[in-house]
């Protein structure tokens, strides 16, 4: 029984660090999306990947690294704040842009730079 506990205790920091790394990678992906997408409203979607997926995974990773339960409570508080304030901020942004008359791009978008990319790849 104690062997299983030992295995868990040795694997926990590695798993935590790995989850932190995955979360940071998701943050980079979301940023790349914000840089690439053509329009304000679509950039909002890319930013929400950072707000939800990256934050959750990184905070779970940090909770696995935490030395005491107090730290876990603080991490849970941060997660709750991010999840409550993130959509409110996004909605306020989208609503302000819509009220100000910013028109979204509608319909299928294909990047002409993507075709040159595929040509290079082939």
């Amino acid at each position: 029984m104690s062997e299983i506990l030992n295995v868990i205790m040795t694997i926990k920091p590695i798993l935590g660090a790995l989850l932190c790394l995955i979360g940071a990678g998701l943050a980079v992906i979301g940023t790349v999306g914000v840089l690439r997408f053509p329009d304000f409203y679509t950039r909002l979607h890319a930013a929400s990947v950072t707000d939800t997926g990256a934050a959750t995974i990184a905070i779970v990773g940090m909770a696995l690294l935490a030395p005491s339960w107090l730290i876990v409570f603080k991490l849970a508080a941060i997660w709750l704040f991010l999840f409550l304030t993130g959509p409110t901020g996004s909605h306020a942004l989208a609503n302000a842009a819509h009220t100000a008359g910013l028109q979204p791009v509608i319909g299928r978008q294909r990047d002409r730079a993507g075709e040159s990319d595929s040509e290079e790849a082939s």
Binding site: C20, G23, A24, A27, G30, T31, V34, F40, R43, L44, A47, T50, D51, A54, A55, A58, I59, M62, L75, I78, L82, G86, G89, L93, A96, A97, A100, L102
Partner: peptide, 22 residues
């Protein structure tokens, strides 16, 4: 536009929160 900048600053703040924790 202005809204792109505000969105970028907001998302920057989320990343900074994660960065301070890590």
């Amino acid at each position: 536009t202005l809204y792109d900048r505000v969105l970028a600053v907001n998302s920057l703040g989320t990343k900074i929160v994660l960065f301070i924790g890590i």
